[in-house]
Design a protein around this nucleic acid. Sequence first.
DNA 1: AGGTCGGCCTGGCAGC
DNA 2: TGCTGCCAGGCCGACC
Length: 285
Amino acid sequence: MPELPEVETIRRQLAPEVAGRVVRRLDVLDPLWSRPVDPAELGAAVSGRGIREMGRRGKYLLLRLDGGETLAMHLRMTGNLLLVEDGEAAEARFLRARFELDDGRELWFTDARRFGQALLLGDERLEEHLAERLGLEPFSEDFTPAALGEMAAGRSAPLKSFLLDQKGVAGVGNIYADEALFRASLHPLSPAGSMRSGHLEDLHEGILGALRAGLDEGGASIDDYRDARGERGTMQDEFLVHTREGLACPRCGESIRRIVVSGRSTYFCPGCQVRLRRRRRRSRL
DNA sequence: AGGTCGGCCTGGCAGC
DNA sequence: TGCTGCCAGGCCGACC
C-alpha cells in the first residue's frame, strides 16, 4: 500500500520531470476520481495549466499549478501515478485519469480498486484541508520524542491505532506502523498513553528508521504498488515483521504473530515487543 | 470526545 | 473448469 515512502519515491521521481511543464490536457475517465466534481469540469480546470512542482504532504501527492491552485491526489490502496513515455504503447489497464504534458509524455493515474481521488483547491483552502486531516511530517524538525509524547498523552487507543491515525504522525500506514513498533520493541496493543520517555525515544527512532528503510528500498511492492517508472520497490524483502507470521523474529527468534487491531492485520513478535500497562493517574496531593 | 466499526471498491485467490 | 465468497485496507461518517 502506498504510504509515506512509496508516495515520496513517486514524488522524487516525478518532481524533476514535471516542474516547468504544462498540462496540455487532463482527461478524467472515472467520475469516482474527481467526485463530487464532474470529470469534464475538473479536466477543463487543469488543462492548459503550468506545473510549478510536485509536492507531498502525508500520503497526498500535490501537483502545484500556476495561479495558486493545487491538484491534491491520494493513491489510497491501489493507486499508481506513472510517467508514460509513449501513451500509444502503454497498457491502459485500470486507467482513471490521463495528463498529457507539453513534451509529449503523459502522467497516468491507474487504480484497480478505484479508491483514489483528486481534489483541486486554492492553496489557502488546501492548507486548511490538509491541516484538518494531517499531523506532523515525520521528517520535519517538529517531529520529536516530546511532540510524540504530547500527542499520545492520555490516549487509551492501542499504539497500532495511534500510529495509523494521520492526525498524529502523517504518512504512516499499516506496513510502517508494524515495522516501527517492532524497531521500538513496543507491543501494538499497548495503550498510546502508557509510553514513558524512553519508549517515546524508541518509537520516534523506530518510525524514522522504518520510513528511511522504506525510502532506501524505493517502497514496498506487496502487490499493486509501482513507482512512477512502473517498477517494483524492494522493501517487502526487508520487512522485519510485517507479513512474516510464523517466521522467526530477527531479534529474539520467537515466532512472529498476526493479530487484528482496528480491523488491520498486525504483525509483531510476542517475545521482545513489550506490552505496557495503562498508566495510573497521578493521585492528587 | 475519544474510540471503534462498517462502507466504499474490485482483483485475486481459496475452496468446492 | 467455473463459480462463489471472502480478503486486502486508507479514509470517512456513523455510532457508542
